[in-house]
Design a protein around this nucleic acid. Structure first.
Length: 454
RNA sequence: GGCAACGUAGCCAAGAGGCCUAAGGCGGAGGUCUGCAAAACCUCUAUUCGCCGGUUCGAAUCCGGCCGUCGCCUCCA
């Protein structure tokens, strides 16, 4: 499989260094509900993992929670909670959202606050080696000591300074130096350290947790494109300075960002749709299909119409599985060419839009073959399997209230009798009234079928 | 200001030198089936890939310029 690496800016044939794929994905800061931009990112990484697994690799997937930072502290104080309580709440919500979206759980979900000891160890070593220095209870990473600082984000220190938005900080040797450890301010949560009471900076946690759970060299490190600078750039600097090993990460994988209107959807801008809001209106499959119909590295603009059109498209896929496979002794058709097209697309840097195209072609072929009297059991199995790699369940929506079921069936029965008696006006009225209530009827040679509309 | 990315049908979105007289989805038009519908299936829906030049036997794909959009440079998936 060819996979794009942000560091080298090229697609390269992917293979893990060891016998399992070590994959670290940057998780959320749990201080508010997750939004559909997060959903998109984690769906992409979920598909990447599923595809690697489908190809026979064992994947060890670690994803952190940044459960201590300025925003968590602020928010917790405003709500009269501890930072821990606030984080717990949004972590629980995050899991609900991801489970609903059929995102596989990572193997480990380390939390920053549970890895403070590790971070301190790393910081101590960085200071010993001259890569970091203490300044009034804070500890900063010495950016000039890292060779190739800027290599991930493809910029130079001079270039960054040119932005002129970096304000020199009297405590820092260089304006781009970043905090590894921050001295505690009154009222903030703190941990003891060789430099006094304080808490970790943002970037150090990911180095500590990824090295601890996966080792000094990762195969894949992922996150949104907005993490490239400074977060991942700094992670490389400190990790490589600490371990002395290069590269820290063999494939940096970054997804394009979700936009709302013309802007990036983000918590700080406040222009967001939460995952719960989206799931109240659309099926998890539709959201996944909407995301996956665009390549993971491209930006995507959130659009209700877009998700709605994915919802309708999904119907085509579902309908290919809805009807039985046809006569058992009838000739069946070979769906393997669709599977190999799918694989080819996925192998090319996870080209899900192209992979989806082969799924839609397969669905059409199944419907056509079945109409032609062929047995499509095998092909349906292929479709189900490939869709599963994309995390699509293709399950029928089950919104209809179970208590309404016998009444719907009774109406269908009565309507059937009316049709036999050619009382079409009445029969059509039943159908259209049910439609108004969100129940669609379809007359087939095998009888009348009903399904709830989304 | 610096560094990137992108601009393909009504909409979304693949394709990155000849297989492109450009996938797939949504929408639209016509048809098959049906009592009529729905669903499904069939046909059609970009002679053209922001604009202008250039390279090449050949460019949506490479190069240059221009216009437009967006991202990062500050917390962010």
């Amino acid at each position: 499989m060819r996979l794009y690496d942000t560091l080298t800016a090229q697609k390269r044939d992917f293979a893990p260094l060891g016998d399992e794929v070590k994959m670290y994905v940057c998780g959320i800061t749990p201080y508010s509900p997750s939004h559909v931009g997060h959903a998109m990112s984690y769906v992409y990484f979920d598909v990447l993992r599923r595809w690697l697994e489908a190809k026979g690799w064992k994947v060890r997937h670690v994803q952190n929670f940044t459960d201590i930072d300025d925003k968590i502290i602020d928010r917790a104080q405003r709500e009269g909670l501890t930072a821990r309580e606030l984080a717990d709440r949004y972590i629980a919500e995050y899991f609900e959202d991801m489970d609903a979206l059929n995102v596989q759980r990572a193997h480990v979900y380390p939390r920053a606050t549970e890895s403070i000891g590790l971070m301190i160890e790393i910081i101590v070593r960085l200071i010993e080696r001259g890569h970091a220095y203490v300044s009034q209870g804070d500890v900063y990473f010495r950016v000039l000591s890292a060779k190739g600082y800027g290599k991930l984000s493809h910029r130079t220190l001079e270039g960054m300074m040119a932005g002129a938005r970096v304000e020199p900080d009297p405590g820092k040797e260089h304006p781009m130096d970043f905090a590894l450890w921050k001295a505690a301010k009154p009222g903030e949560p703190w941990w003891d350290s060789p430099w006094g009471k304080g808490r970790p900076g943002w970037h150090i946690e990911c180095s500590a947790m990824s090295i601890h759970y996966l080792g000094e060299t990762l195969d894949i490190h992922g996150g949104g494109q907005d993490l490239i600078f400074p977060h991942h750039e700094n992670e490389i600097a400190q990790s490589e300075a600490y371990t002395g090993k290069e590269p820290f990460v063999r494939w940096w994988v970054h997804n394009g960002l979700l936009r709302l209107g013309l802007d990036k959807m983000s918590k700080s801008l406040g222009n967001l749709i939460t995952i719960k809001e989206a799931l109240a209106r659309f099926s998890p499959d539709a959201l996944r299909l909407f995301f996956l119909s665009s390549h993971y590295r491209s930006p995507l603009t959130w659009s209700e119409e877009g998700v709605a059109s994915a919802e309708r498209a999904l119907e085509r896929l579902r309908s290919a599985l809805r009807d039985g496979p046809g006569p058992a002794n009838a000739p069946s058709f070979d769906a393997s060419s669709f599977a190999s097209r799918f694989a080819q697309s996925m192998d090319d840097d996870l080209n899900t839009p192209q992979a989806l195209a082969s799924l839609f072609d397969l669905a059409r072929e199944i419907n056509r073959a079945r109409e032609g009297g062929a047995n499509v059991a095998g092909a349906q199995g292929v479709l189900r399997h490939l869709a599963g790699i994309l995390g699509l369940t293709l399950q029928e929506p089950v919104k209809a209230d179970l208590t309404a079921r016998p009444f719907i069936e009774l109406l269908i029965e009565v309507r059937g009798e009316l049709r036999k008696m050619r009382q079409y006006a009445l029969a059509d009225r039943i159908r259209s009234r049910l439609m108004d209530m969100g129940i669609a009827l379809e007359d087939t040679p095998q009888g009348t079928r009903w399904r709830p509309l989304e």
